[in-house]
Design a protein around this nucleic acid. Sequence first.
DNA 1: TTGAAAGCGCTAACAT
DNA 2: ATGTTAGCGCTTTCAA
Lengths: 338, 338
Amino acid sequence: MDERLRKPRIDDVARRAGVSTATVSRALATPDQVKPKTREAVEKAVLETGYVLNVAARNLRTNRTHAVLAVVPDVANIFFSQVLRGISDTLHQHGYRLVIADTGNDPERERDHAEFAQAGWVDGLLLLNGRLLPAPEGGRRRLAVPTVSLCERIPGSDIPYVETANREAARAMTERLLQLGHRRIGYVSGPPNNILEHDRFAGYQDALAARGLAPDPTLVRPGDYTLAMGEAAATAYLALAELPDAVFASNDAMAMGLIRGFTAAGLSVPEAISIAGFDDIEFAGAYNPALTTVHQARSEIGARATTMLIDLIEGRQLASREVHLPAEIVMRDSTRER
Amino acid sequence: MDERLRKPRIDDVARRAGVSTATVSRALATPDQVKPKTREAVEKAVLETGYVLNVAARNLRTNRTHAVLAVVPDVANIFFSQVLRGISDTLHQHGYRLVIADTGNDPERERDHAEFAQAGWVDGLLLLNGRLLPAPEGGRRRLAVPTVSLCERIPGSDIPYVETANREAARAMTERLLQLGHRRIGYVSGPPNNILEHDRFAGYQDALAARGLAPDPTLVRPGDYTLAMGEAAATAYLALAELPDAVFASNDAMAMGLIRGFTAAGLSVPEAISIAGFDDIEFAGAYNPALTTVHQARSEIGARATTMLIDLIEGRQLASREVHLPAEIVMRDSTRER
DNA sequence: TTGAAAGCGCTAACAT
DNA sequence: ATGTTAGCGCTTTCAA
C-alpha cells in the first residue's frame, strides 16, 4: 500500500530478492560478477518493485555523471545543430548523455556553465564556440575538466580540437573556379579576427598565388556570415566598372545573399556570374540555383571530437590532438565554365 | 600544498571562515538568512579556497536537479533547433539547465531516456516528438515526472501542450490564395496519420468550404515533409491536363521542392504558378523566390511550454493546459495575383 | 542567527 | 560469489 507510494530504493529490491544491496548493485551494473541464479532473482525483484536507480546518489558515490556538456553559441544555427547530431549519436553509443548550453555568446552564461562543469555536473566539455570557458570569478586556477574543442579551434590554447581543413578547402575551391576559366575572382569575407576566416582567406590567396596571381583588393568585400552582407556585397560589385567572373563567399548564407542580390539586379547566376559558398548547409543543394560549395562533414566533426573526449574522460591516450578533416568540393548549379 | 590538489569541500570553507558547514550552505543558498558579517566571511573563504559546489551531493540531498530534459526527434532539424532556442533562453532565466535527448525516433533511445528521467536525472520533461515516452520495461505505472508537450500535441493524452493553431493558419493561408483570385488550389500533404497534417488539411478544406468549394482530389498530392516529395508533386502536377493556379504545401521544404520542380520544367514561380508553404523556416525568406508561408513563432512556442513546465515543477497551477499560438501569414514573392 | 548531526541512496573496499 | 559497512558532500531539522 504505502510501498506503492514510496519510490523503491535499492534495499527494497535487496530485501525482496533475499540478497544484499551490494549484490543488487552488482547484478545491475556488472551482471557477470553475479551468479546467473542470483541475477535473475534480482531482475525479478526489480520488475516487481518497479525500482529505478537514483542517478544523483550514484553520481555522488562514483564521482561520475556519464554526461557531457556541449557549449554552443546558438543551437538554432543550422550549422551547429548538425554537428550536435554527430555528437549526440556518438555519445549515445558510448553510454553518455548530452547536455547543451546555448550561450548566445553571452559571457555571463558561459561563466555560469563553466562553474557547473566544475561542480561535477558533467564529465567532459565540448567547446563549439571557439573560445575557452571563462575562469570562475575569483580568477582561480581551474580544475581540469576533460575538454575538446571543435569547428573552430581555440587560438593560444593547447586544447585538442577537430576542425575542417579550412585553408586547404578554400584553396581547392578557388582552384576549381580558376580551372573553370575565371580570373577575376571576388571574395566575400567572414568577420575579421575570426580564425576560420583567416584560414579560408589564406586558402583563397594560396590558389591565386599558385598561378602567379594576387587578390584584387576591389574584389574582396567584407562580410559577417549573414545573408544581408552577401546582398550588400552584390550591390558593391554591381557598382564596379567591371564585374568579377566569379565570387567565392566564405559561407553559404553570404553566397545565397549574392545570388539574391545579382538576381534582383537582373543578372542570372551562373550565366552572368558564378557563385560559390562554403559549408554546404542543409538548403544549399535545395537552393535555386543549387549552390556550389565546400561540403563540411558536420556530423563527422562532432563524432570525431566526441570520441576524443571520451578517450580523455576514460583516461586513454589521444592518437592525435589536432584533427583536420578534409572537405569536399561540391560543384552544383551556381557555377559554370567561363 | 596538498590542499591545492584536493577539491575543496564545504567544510574546508567552513573551517576557513570559522563557521559551521550549515552556515556556509545558508550563506550561499539563502544569503539573507545570514548576518552580513558572516556572509562576507564565507564569501571570502569561498574565494580563497576556490570552493565549487558539488552538484551531485546537492541533488541527492534536495532531490532536485534544476535541469529539464527536452526530447527531440532530430536536433539537426532546423525547425526544432529554433524551438530549442526559446526553451534554452527561458530555462536559463529561471535558473534551470537544458538536457537534450536526440532520439532519432528510436524507441529504444526513448525508453532509455524515459528511465533516466525517472531516475531523477531531471526535474521535468519537454516532449517535442509528438508522443509519450514509453513505459519502462516491466510496463509499470510510471511515477509522475512533470511534463509538457509542444509543437505537436499528443493524441489521447492529457499532457498540457503548446502548439501553433495549425488549422486556423492553414485556413487563413488558403483564404489568402483565394483572395488572390486562385481557384484551382493544389495541396501537398504531410505524412498520413500526422496530427499536424490533419489540422492543416482541415484548415485548407475549411477555407474552400467557406466559398462553397471542395478540394479537387487530383490536386491533392501525398507528401512527407521532404523537399524530394515537393519535387515529385511538381512532376505530378505537370502531368495534369490543366495546371493548378496555386499550390499550398503543408511545409516549407516541400514548397521549395515544388518551386525547384516547376522551375526545372521551365515554369517560373510565381508568374506561371503561385506556391505557398508552412513553417517559415530560416531560409524561407532567403529563398529564390522568397517563399510565401505561414510563420510559426518557434521560439515563442518553446518559451511558453517552458514556462508551463516550470510552473508544474514548482507546484503552481496552470492557467491553461492547452495553448494554441496564432500564426502569421507572410506573403513574399512566390505568390501573386491571378 | 548559528551549530550539531542525521541522512539522502548508492557503490566499493574489505571481509568472508 | 556475496555480505557488511563506511562514506561520497551536501542540506535541513532541531536545538541552542
